[in-house]
Nucleic acid binder design. Sequence first.
DNA 1: GCCAACGTTGGC
DNA 2: GCCAACGTTGGC
Length: 139
Amino acid sequence: MAYWLFKSEPNTWSWADQVARGDAGEEWDGVRNYQARNNMRLMQLGDRGFFYHSLKEKAVVGVVEVCALAHPDSTTEDPRWDCVDIRALRPLQRPVTLTEAKAHPDLAEMALVKNTRLSVQPVSDSEWRIICALGGVAP
DNA sequence: GCCAACGTTGGC
DNA sequence: GCCAACGTTGGC
């Protein structure tokens, strides 16, 4: 299983919004960046991801699961853009902030730390375990 | 609110 | 195919 990280501005689409969608999940639409789209095309059903709040909060707040493979983004006619659907699995017991990730030596290579502008990112196995441990949830 | 980093676009 | 201009993201 692969691991990912989804960034969202909480004003636009928050963890609470995602939880409210329940098991039906929601399209991760609106992505207009090739790297982010390519990452979504690589996702498999059941892959896990972190849900990250950007801007004011800057913290990983929850765990999600990919529940639909990449398909055309319903918010555009442009055939270049695909997206997956994700559903909320559980919140972190404690949000893991960007500051913490930056301070952790084993997270220095994380895309979240190194490539702040990529909105859909891969997460390595070890990064996944570290953040789960910091957040107080099972990996 | 500002600015740096980065990606995309379009002229040549 | 290069590169300047521009737009967007997101941290501070």
